[in-house]
């Protein structure tokens, strides 16, 4: 029996009166791998941020694991992978230290890390192929390796649902492959995935359903659509820059 993991009902999100999402409804059930596709500025990142409660809904509702978002407390069931590591902190941190943050949802604020925590961090580092970089400062890693660090952080919490915001944008091919492998293992273990993507690349075989967001609404919900126009050209090289989805600074404090 598959139960809904995420339910968005008539969700509306706006910033300063400017609507970004208008009346969006979406259901993700356990075991699905759902890709949210759409052009830059379509509102696809906003959709998953609303699902996680990072941006407030103007109206409508979000339900996570059968709990209304406002009363949802089982955050250890969710692993979140942001688009990139925050603006970069002033103090160096090792890859292992960043990945270990992923255990907090499970462990709580006060309990010191134990054996299970260390094992989970080791396993997560190994699954993204960064075990040999565990002691290096995150700032010395390439963009793709930093992205893998963030995925390891989410996996370290042993979540049931992974929510990823453009995990492969601007990431080198080796990291994309490592990432696709880690995601495949996660899905094989019964995990549910909601990811925002601009292009699917090596993830494509994993996706069970695609949702296309266009101009703040859902334009398509079903099989992964075929690329249109010049994107469909087999020789098409994806060369345009991957800018941030929406202008930065509106809600990024």
């Amino acid at each position: 029996m598959t139960s809904p993991v995420i339910t968005v009902t008539h969700g509306v999100v706006g910033y300063d009166g400017r609507p970004v999402l208008r009346d969006v409804s979406l259901t993700v059930t356990a075991g699905e791998v759902v890709a949210v596709l759409g052009a830059n500025g379509s509102g696809k990142s906003t959709l998953i941020r609303a699902v996680l409660g990072l941006v407030p809904l103007v109206s409508g509702s979000v339900t996570l694991f059968d709990h209304p978002l406002r009363r949802f407390r089982q955050w250890h069931r969710i692993g979140y992978v942001p688009q990139r590591l925050g603006a970069g902190s002033g103090v160096p941190a090792t890859v292992r230290e960043v990945v270990a943050s992923g255990r907090l949802a499970r462990r709580g604020v006060l309990r010191p890390p134990g054996r299970a925590d260390r094992d989970a961090v080791d396993a997560a580092l190994a699954s993204v192929g960064l075990a040999d970089r565990a002691g290096d400062p995150v700032a010395t890693l390439s963009g793709g390796q930093q992205q893998r660090t963030l995925i390891a952080r989410a996996l370290a919490g042993q979540p049931e649902l992974l929510v990823l915001d453009e995990p492969t944008a601007g990431v080198d091919a080796a990291s994309q492959e490592a990432f696709a492998g880690a995601l495949k293992d996660f899905v094989a273990g019964g995990g549910t995935v909601l990811l925002v993507a601009h292009e699917l690349g090596p993830l494509r075989p994993l996706i069970s359903r695609a949702v296309v967001v266009h101009a703040g609404g859902i334009a398509h919900d079903g099989a992964v659509p075929e690329p249109a126009g010049h994107h469909a050209d087999p020789d098409h090289d994806h060369v345009h820059p991957h800018g941030p989805d929406e202008p930065a600074g509106l809600w990024s404090s």
Partner: peptide, 17 residues
């Protein structure tokens, strides 16, 4: 660990509950 997480990536800390 908790203060590190909050100061390092506040949004992630929020999604960690």
């Amino acid at each position: 660990p908790a203060l590190f997480a909050v100061c390092h990536d506040e949004e992630y800390a929020r999604v960690s509950g």
